[in-house]
Deep mutational scan, measured.
Amino acid sequence: RKWEEIAERLREEFNINPEEAREAVEKAGGNEEEARRIVKKRL
C-alpha cells in the first residue's frame, strides 16, 4: 500500500516510530506533503 511507503519514508527521515508515521499519513489522507507538515509540527 502506498500509505505504508510514505509512512516508512517519514519514519526514516524524521526518526519517528512507525505508529507516529502511520498516524500522520492517515490524518493527511495519504498526502505525503501534508503528512510531512503534520510530523514537523509534532517535533
Rank of each mutant, 00 (worst) to 15 (best):
R1A: 13
R1E: 12
R1G: 11
R1I: 11
R1L: 12
R1S: 13
R1D: 12
R1C: 10
R1H: 11
R1W: 08
R1V: 11
K2R: 14
K2I: 14
K2D: 11
K2A: 13
K2E: 12
W3P: 05
W3F: 09
W3M: 07
W3K: 06
W3V: 05
W3C: 05
E4A: 14
E4R: 14
E4C: 07
E4K: 11
E4M: 09
E4D: 13
E4S: 08
E4L: 10
E4H: 10
E4V: 07
E4G: 09
E4Q: 14
E5W: 07
E5I: 09
E5F: 05
E5D: 10
I6E: 03
I6K: 03
I6P: 01
A7T: 07
A7I: 14
A7L: 07
E8P: 01
E8D: 11
E8S: 12
E8V: 11
R9W: 04
R9P: 01
R9M: 08
R9D: 05
R9L: 08
R9K: 11
R9C: 05
L10M: 05
L10I: 10
L10V: 05
L10P: 00
L10F: 02
L10W: 01
L10R: 00
R11P: 01
R11W: 11
R11D: 02
R11Q: 12
R11C: 03
E12P: 02
E12K: 15
E12W: 15
E12T: 15
E13T: 05
E13F: 06
E13M: 08
E13W: 06
E13D: 07
E13K: 04
E13S: 04
E13H: 05
E13A: 07
E13Q: 07
F14E: 02
F14D: 01
F14Y: 09
F14M: 04
F14S: 02
F14I: 01
N15E: 07
N15P: 07
N15A: 10
N15F: 08
N15M: 09
N15L: 08
N15K: 12
I16S: 02
I16Y: 02
I16G: 01
I16V: 08
I16Q: 02
I16E: 01
N17W: 07
N17P: 13
N17T: 15
N17V: 07
N17S: 14
N17D: 12
N17I: 06
P18Y: 13
P18K: 12
P18W: 14
P18L: 14
P18E: 13
P18H: 13
E19T: 10
E19H: 09
E19R: 08
E19V: 09
E19C: 07
E19A: 11
E19N: 10
E20L: 14
E20K: 04
E20Y: 08
E20S: 06
E20G: 04
E20D: 11
E20M: 15
E20I: 12
E20F: 14
A21E: 00
A21N: 00
A21L: 03
A21S: 06
A21R: 00
A21K: 00
R22G: 04
R22H: 09
R22F: 12
R22D: 05
R22V: 07
R22T: 08
R22S: 08
E23C: 05
E23P: 01
E23R: 10
E23F: 10
E23S: 12
A24I: 14
A24M: 05
A24V: 10
A24K: 01
V25G: 01
V25S: 02
V25K: 00
V25I: 10
V25Q: 01
V25E: 00
V25W: 03
V25D: 00
V25Y: 03
E26T: 11
E26I: 12
E26D: 08
E26Q: 13
E26H: 12
K27P: 00
K27M: 15
K27I: 14
K27H: 10
K27R: 12
A28D: 00
A28K: 01
A28I: 00
A28W: 01
A28N: 02
A28Q: 02
A28G: 05
G29I: 08
G29T: 06
G29A: 13
G29L: 12
G29Q: 13
G29R: 14
G30A: 03
G30L: 03
G30E: 02
N31I: 09
N31P: 00
N31H: 08
N31R: 07
N31S: 09
N31E: 07
N31Y: 06
E32Q: 06
E32M: 10
E32C: 04
E32Y: 13
E32T: 04
E32G: 03
E33G: 08
E33Q: 12
E33P: 06
E33L: 11
E33A: 13
E34N: 07
E34M: 12
E34I: 12
E34G: 06
A35P: 00
A35V: 02
A35K: 00
A35W: 00
A35F: 01
A35L: 01
R36F: 04
R36C: 04
R36S: 03
R36P: 00
R36W: 05
R36K: 06
R37Q: 10
R37I: 09
R37H: 08
R37A: 12
R37T: 09
I38R: 06
I38S: 06
I38N: 05
V39M: 06
V39D: 00
V39E: 01
V39Y: 03
V39L: 15
V39F: 03
V39K: 01
V39H: 02
V39I: 15
K40M: 15
K40S: 10
K40F: 09
K40R: 15
K40V: 15
K40D: 08
K40H: 15
K41I: 10
K41N: 10
K41R: 15
K41T: 10
K41W: 06
K41Y: 06
K41H: 13
R42G: 14
R42P: 03
R42H: 15
R42E: 09
R42C: 04
R42W: 15
R42Y: 15
R42N: 15
L43V: 06
L43S: 05
L43Y: 08
L43F: 11
L43Q: 08
L43H: 06
